[in-house]
Design a protein around this nucleic acid. Structure first.
Lengths: 212, 212
DNA sequence: CCATGCAGTTAACAACTGTTCTCCGTAATT
DNA sequence: AATTACGGAGAACAGTTGTTAACTGCATGG
């Protein structure tokens, strides 16, 4: 398939990525609905009109950012939920994985948390769709677990949504810990880990007694 | 105490409220970080400079909106959680109350959901503080319940946060149902109610088996 | 009843925004 | 080798923004 694309399209994708990166940086201190097209091109060092070669509007760029932030996350989700082992181990592993992801891509996490309920409709929809896909995938993995024997499809999906929302809340808390002063960072991270662990533990308990 | 304030201060508070109302309306289709001061005054029908008599900036106005949206909600929270009765009844009553609140104050709910992770730091902090107060109050009520016998303070607080976050998620889902086309409204509302009910039921199950 | 205080107005400022049109250089195609 | 396609630059547009200053009218307190 992917035959080496010409030096022309290569350059195009390069500046396109530069626009995305610059936008993501600028969005650390504002929302997408206030992000100006000129602001982005200025940060990249390119003429304002060049923007139109890549995106129709900043809202369009936002949708592309959603794809970049969440699109590549699906395989990770599947393997995380499906990992075998003690349920306590699985909880620890999932939270560790969230923490690492927030550490590696803080701007992406902030963007999703911010724009999930943000002021730009197409972006909200894109995020909602991606999260719905996550929930579906988590549901599929949950269905394989023997614990889920006798569960309704609806109930599996409601639990999956609970897990996905919980994942996002935890990621957002890790992010706040990262943003705070460096001295408190370690302690706050530990605290978030502890609380999130117990919340997942409690949800897991409810899950085991669902069919009583 | 509240001696009838003069016709002067009355007028001031009147336009102040008009500014808040207009801002809340404009924020249905954008985020606070893109809300312009002139935009607000124009909507009210007042000179741009009049804005400064009431707020230092739109961020300042945002903090005032947080107070308006969440400040008066504390008594409701306490009575909701503490209501006696079957745990199933309490769940139904809590969700019914959330649905009614979203119905009555959709713009407030949207504002809080949007700006909780929004681009304006002082507003984020104000919301975080109010939600932390909610969690504390929920914790205090949970502590009175016989089911909480033997629970750590930390564990009560982690459960309280779980409830508060869940409340916000549910409110946001109700809001989305309201915003959709009118034909689907009833069905979507019913669906949200059903899912939220089961999620609270599952969390309640986990709560009862926490000390196993 | 008069002097003070203050909510709101008017006018002006430099700076910024999104968008259009025209142009340039060069990679890609023939 | 000649032609086309296209990413990007440049200049100009009308409109908007936050903020300042000096003002006006009127409710308030002496």
């Amino acid at each position: 398939m992917s035959h080496t694309l010409g030096i022309r399209q290569a350059q195009k994708q390069k500046t396109r990525q530069a626009l995305l990166d610059a936008a993501l940086g600028l969005l650390e201190e504002q929302s997408l609905s206030s992000l100006g097209l000129r602001e982005v091109t200025r940060a990249v060092g390119v003429a304002p009109t060049a923007f139109y070669r890549h995106f129709r509007s900043t809202a369009d760029l936002g949708v592309a950012l959603v794809e970049e932030a969440l699109g590549s996350l699906h395989p990770m989700i599947r393997t995380t939920v499906s990992t075998t082992g003690d349920s306590e181990e699985r909880i620890a592993r999932a939270i560790e994985l969230i923490a690492r992801h927030v550490d590696g891509y803080p701007a992406h996490v902030r963007f999703i948390a911010r724009e999930r309920h943000g002021g730009v409709q197409p972006v909200r929809e894109a995020i909602r769709d991606q999260l719905a896909r996550f929930a579906q995938e988590v549901k599929d993995e949950l269905a394989k677990d023997p614990v889920s024997a006798g569960w309704t499809e609806d109930d599996l999906l409601m639990l999956a949504h609970l897990y996905v929302d919980q994942m996002l809340i935890t990621a957002s808390l890790f992010l706040e810990a990262l943003e705070g002063p460096e001295r408190e960072r370690e302690e706050r991270t530990r605290h978030v880990t502890q609380v999130a662990t117990r919340q997942l533990r409690l949800i897991g308990l409810g899950r085991h007694h669902w069919l009583d």
